[in-house]
Nucleic acid binder design. Structure first.
Lengths: 142, 142
DNA sequence: AATTGTAGATTACAGTTGTAATCTATGGTG
DNA sequence: CACCATAGATTACAACTGTAATCTACAATT
């Protein structure tokens, strides 16, 4: 620990206080794990490579970072690790959505939908789905 | 330019090819400018400080970065600059929303709304607004 | 048992970001 | 006209990111 500045030390000590932030690339990894877990690093690589092209080394790095951030954990199975999420997908997605809506739309969904409607990014199908969601909501809120 | 690696050079040459990325802090600045422009750095600081606390130096740095990224431009007025956006607020917001929805919800709005409904983050007011948006949409799409 | 492929650990490295402090030049003030 | 406050320019700097290459150790194979 030689050469560590006081600031670094303090930063480290209060690390746990900070809200955990998952970067975009890390989220892709997390998402692949959520698909089915526990799973190996190879599983993750394979899943990701169905869509895009991820270098195995990159995926390993990101898995390591997610472990350090305590977003996932692993269990040793002889040669390889079995990874598994420590955070819930729905919870995470809600939190992220909430943050996003706060930053851009005052925290509400409707302005987003309105903005999509205005720029013609809303299809009949989207509207049908929205109507269904609304009627379900009304069903359970009276 | 001595000591520049080939990779750096290439990165720089193809710089314009990359989609411009505005960071979160930069977005706050942009947002303050969109409120009313042209405006000075001081205007931006004042506007931001109505809500949060921004250091003047930080704001200046971010203004500089936005200029470099060609997200805003300025015009000299003797001692100070008059800043003004180079990107349209609605366009930017739509693009960001689209990206966000692609990353988390397969690109569609309804799953976001559904997820909000499920976690009880939807108020009667939100629902009323959504209904209004939908009926307006249907009005103009038949 | 020696060898080797491979899994994870460590190291690399430039770019971005948040957050400012310091430098420099100039317009306004006494 | 000299001086200074201040605006913008430059510099700082650690953390985070994306993207991998290299190192190290062990399990499976011959």
């Amino acid at each position: 620990m030689a050469g560590v500045t006081l600031k670094q030390l303090i930063t480290h000590v209060i690390y746990r206080e900070k809200a955990m932030e998952v970067s975009k690339a890390e989220f892709e990894i997390l998402n692949a794990i959520w698909a089915e877990y526990p799973c190996t690093a190879k599983d993750v690589v394979d899943r990701l490579n169905q869509q895009d092209s991820w270098h195995e080394k990159t995926v390993k790095t990101l898995l390591g970072r997610l472990v350090k951030k305590q977003a996932i954990s692993f269990e040793k199975r002889s040669r390889h690790y079995l990874y598994q999420p420590l955070i819930d997908k729905n919870e995470y997605i809600i939190k992220e959505s909430d943050n996003f809506l706060k930053r851009l739309f005052g925290g509400k969904v409707s302005p987003l939908v309105a903005s999509f409607a205005k720029s013609e990014k809303l299809s009949q199908n989207d509207v049908d789905e929205l109507k269904k969601i609304i009627s379900d909501w009304e069903q359970s809120n009276d």
